[in-house]
Write a protein that binds this DNA or RNA. Sequence first.
DNA 1: TAGATTGTTAATCGATTAACAATC
DNA 2: TAGATTGTTAATCGATTAACAATC
Lengths: 208, 208
Amino acid sequence: MKEKISNSVIRRLPRYYRFLDELKEQGINRISSGELSRKMGLTASQIRQDFNCFGEFGQQGYGYNVDILQKEIINILGLEKMHTAIIVGVGNIGRGVAQHINFNNFGFSITGLFDIKESLVGQMVYNMPIRNISSLDEFCRENHPEAAVICLPVDAAKVITAQLINLGVKAFWNFSHYDIAVDHPDILVENVHLNDSLMTLSYKLKNN
Amino acid sequence: MKEKISNSVIRRLPRYYRFLDELKEQGINRISSGELSRKMGLTASQIRQDFNCFGEFGQQGYGYNVDILQKEIINILGLEKMHTAIIVGVGNIGRGVAQHINFNNFGFSITGLFDIKESLVGQMVYNMPIRNISSLDEFCRENHPEAAVICLPVDAAKVITAQLINLGVKAFWNFSHYDIAVDHPDILVENVHLNDSLMTLSYKLKNN
DNA sequence: TAGATTGTTAATCGATTAACAATC
DNA sequence: TAGATTGTTAATCGATTAACAATC
């Protein structure tokens, strides 16, 4: 294991994970950096550099064992260690994410869902009722969720995030437009800025 | 306007757009790169470099006019030019995105929604019925959508994407795990890999 | 004018690519 | 052994930061 792993490397790991899955499905259990580079549209050099950040996973003259490599990536990403998480905001996008994402596969166990809207409170998602956001404090003091998925409008996101940080939440999967990292530099944040992404597509269309 | 604008710069533009919005709401109509850098957690240098890729938007000794700057960014991102788009796959995530995203604000006008599931066909989203995916060919030949939002499982995504490219769709907002760019290098793709994002959060939690 | 802040060039830093010796 | 392919160092490329002259 080398020193500091760069962000660029980390962001490529899930993609490797995905492609290794595909190889496994095709019954391929051995792959060289050259072959993988062609399949993924990267350079073989980059692939070898990336993997070598974490140790020596390959074998000279042979390549990489698909299964072992994927297990290493699972380990690096920490997908086997489970973290508790709550979903705050179960509107259009919150509900979509809640139902679409297989949290368990990626190291998260959802322990609660919250919304402010009375009409949503009590509805079942998975096999859990949506709770009133007024019970957030109490719930967190009892259950100590480690992470929160934030699917709220920007103003609510700001307030609720600060509240959750006080309650000990350490990591946020942030779907809101609120920039958590600016106010809370020491908190772990992963942003999903859908609007930003769509604007980028608009840019590409303009400058094709 | 300089030569090639780097990807890193483009990806920062929507974020500038967002922060300028916030400034406008606060009634601030003038900002220096130094102040903005503190608010956004960037260097002032980078901000000036970024804006200078596209022209001279500021004024020495004064800074930038918030309104003008935002209009320039809107122009650069092409948010005023409207593009027609369809949404393919109206399951959990497709529906969430369809209802959550304000496509019109970002240069897109949704002209059709499609799903394969009979139980969904006919249901109304916005003021449009979800159509059967079997009518995709006919619809595209008549309406020529420029872009498609892909919210499908990986296998369906692969097939439908190829079909849509044949029908003249030029750009994809891709929520599937299928890597469009590998098979179709000349097509415009903007990926939203939610699973990848969540795995990154898992990594951060492991290596906090 | 003096102060502030841009636009822009130069320096630094980091990430990607190329090359090749080590080794299976 | 000969061929293949890794692990790793060195070279290149690109992006960020620093510095400062231009100018409002």
